[in-house]
Computed example of a mutant assay.
Amino acid sequence: MSFDDGRCRAAKRVLVAEDEILIAMEIERALASGGFEVLGPVGSVEEALQLLHRERPDAAVLDVTLRDGKVTAVAALLRSRDVPFVLASAEGRALTESGFFRGVTNLGKPTDMSRMVGEIRRLLG
């Protein structure tokens, strides 16, 4: 919880879907340091979908390829719930220039953690 002018408000919750544990831990630390509550991290599409059936994040950071496949189903569910997300993927610019992920910010890998936190803040406006 954080305090703002004497009023208490809950931290914004951010889903992290990343299958590389060290990267997931780094993302989790950066988001927590930025004042966010982290949901996960989860390393598979199945885990992410299960979590989303129990929880509603305010935003998400998604790797495109998880242990059990592409994160597209997770991104589609987030979109259907109007939950903004960014990608943290080593896949190139072509990923976000056309198709399903068109227009989505891809922070790339290695991910600049301060840029990621700033982008999440921007999405949550």
Rank of each mutant, 00 (worst) to 15 (best):
I21A: 14
V117H: 07
D58V: 00
L66V: 04
F100N: 04
M25E: 14
R13G: 02
D4N: 07
V86E: 03
A10P: 11
E97G: 15
R79W: 07
L49Y: 07
L49P: 06
L49R: 08
A90S: 02
A59D: 08
G99N: 13
R93I: 11
G40I: 07
K12A: 04
L78H: 14
R9K: 08
L22S: 13
R13C: 02
G6R: 07
T96D: 14
E55Q: 15
R67Y: 06
E18S: 03
E91S: 15
T72W: 13
F100Q: 01
V86G: 05
L66R: 02
G35L: 03
G118W: 12
S80N: 09
G34T: 11
S98M: 05
I120Q: 00
T111K: 00
G92H: 10
G69L: 13
G103T: 01
L95I: 09
G6D: 08
S89Q: 00
K70E: 15
R93F: 05
I120M: 01
P57L: 09
K70R: 15
D68I: 10
I27L: 05
V45L: 09
I23M: 11
D4T: 09
L87K: 04
D68V: 07
P84R: 07
D19G: 02
E55R: 15
G99L: 12
V38R: 03
I21N: 11
L77K: 10
E97P: 12
A76D: 12
D82C: 10
R9F: 12
E37F: 06
G92L: 06
L62Y: 10
T96N: 05
D19H: 05
A32K: 14
V117Q: 13
N106P: 08
T105H: 10
R115W: 01
P84H: 03
E46G: 12
A73E: 12
N106Q: 05
I27T: 09
G40R: 09
R54W: 07
E28S: 11
G108H: 05
L87R: 10
G118K: 04
M1W: 08
V16C: 01
S89P: 08
V14C: 02
L39Y: 06
L15P: 03
D5Q: 13
E119A: 00
R9E: 04
L95C: 08
L22F: 13
R67K: 09
G43V: 08
V42L: 04
V86K: 04
R93G: 13
E97D: 13
M113V: 00
N106V: 04
H53E: 15
D68T: 09
C8K: 15
V61R: 01
V61L: 03
R13E: 04
L78T: 02
A88F: 11
A94S: 14
